[in-house]
Design a protein around this nucleic acid. Sequence first.
DNA 1: TCGCGCGCTTGATCTGGGTCAATGATGACC
DNA 2: GGTCATCATTGACCCAGATCAAGCGCGCGA
Lengths: 248, 248
Amino acid sequence: MLNEDIKTVAHDCGDCPIRHRAVCARCEADELERLEEIKYYRNFQAGQTIIWSGDRMDFVGSVVSGIATLTQTMEDGRTQMVGLLLPSDFVGRPGRDGSPYDVVATTDMVMCCFRKKPFEELMADTPHIAHRLLEMTLDELDAAREWMLVLGRKTAREKIASLLSIIARRDATLNLQTQQNSLVFDLPLTREAMADYLGLTLETVSRQISALKRDGVIELEGKRHVTVPDFSRLLDEAGDDSDGGMLS
Amino acid sequence: MLNEDIKTVAHDCGDCPIRHRAVCARCEADELERLEEIKYYRNFQAGQTIIWSGDRMDFVGSVVSGIATLTQTMEDGRTQMVGLLLPSDFVGRPGRDGSPYDVVATTDMVMCCFRKKPFEELMADTPHIAHRLLEMTLDELDAAREWMLVLGRKTAREKIASLLSIIARRDATLNLQTQQNSLVFDLPLTREAMADYLGLTLETVSRQISALKRDGVIELEGKRHVTVPDFSRLLDEAGDDSDGGMLS
DNA sequence: TCGCGCGCTTGATCTGGGTCAATGATGACC
DNA sequence: GGTCATCATTGACCCAGATCAAGCGCGCGA
């Protein structure tokens, strides 16, 4: 699984989010070396299932580009998305063998993977990687719990606004382009995927997006390209009290 | 905060869940010593708020007895419970200062606390405590995500059945009394608290409990004492495909 | 260039659970 | 042992969002 470009990116932290996020802040040469040895890239096509629920996972890794979703499905077909993986997000559960949900690429993706067993050994030797993983897991837990409020208590309109503001926020921090106070981004999900995230039907998603557009909260170009003229207005619609660190 | 009984329980792992779960599996004398030094007990009364959302937390700890809830509240008063703390559950976020939600005791409680800063130092020195915390956080994340499916996709009846089966399961594993194939337990929550957990109203909770009783899925004695004659029937009602490790 | 499929929109109708309101149990406190 | 407060139940009605159904528009392959 080793390939030629490993050496060339050995100290290019921007390339590989896991290295960037988990290690580089306090990087030490031998750790980088060991990480490089167990690192490889994998490509996935849009629609491809990366891991099936219950499958054994023999790697951990992080998203370099593209988007994936974590979903749970009941026997009768009802599905709920329980996580959204954007570039720099971590995938995998050190110390656990199986995945409790399906991981599906919704766009073409590149992942930076590490073989699981050696990664865990490395983790055992280097406490700050373990520490970084705890940090990431706590972040995911916070996100999951915030989403529980969305699922349990918000109206359809608030749910849509919440999703849009999360995507806008992530997009802005990734691209560092909070340009002229308005936000522009492409929706990385179909209406159906949004519905699965929000606990709604795709028809309701469509209607509420139309409503937000009609009311001037968002502008749409085609079906996916969104511009948000006033982000605080969107947050208002989401029923959020905080700006999530977007506005100062 | 040190008190006299510390020495007497120094090696009684059953008494203090955090020590039992986080440390004792591979316990080493000096760690126990250091844990004892920063440990103290706190009592809370039913209804008392342990931590307000946004508050600084200067301790971590675990539940010895009683029940607490983690809740998030919107400005207009809508609230969603995002976690339920039963005996042996861990409270606190090593490395984080504030709490993102209210922690409220719903019964009288005893907690075993550790001052946060020294606990973090101990964690930095002893990798397997950090490892144990990662494990616990992953468990919480799994639970939160399973709950997202409940909140987003299940009907009111399924939600109630899901909650009952979770409580029954926890209760049984704690008390090790899977006696004569039927389960008996007391509901530790009011109808309103259940509603807040399930994203329902208390009226709907009441109606669905009555319906499950009418249909013979559960039996009620008073308002809180529940017996489940057939656990797999309850799991069926919950729409769950697995038995959660209860039945073999 | 056509048509065909997929993602999306919009309309009509239905229904699960919310809302509002009245009434019942239980137990603590005087 | 009566009063009051808290928790729970039940009924009547309503509405947000689900369901069912009909099109629309755009990209793609023949």
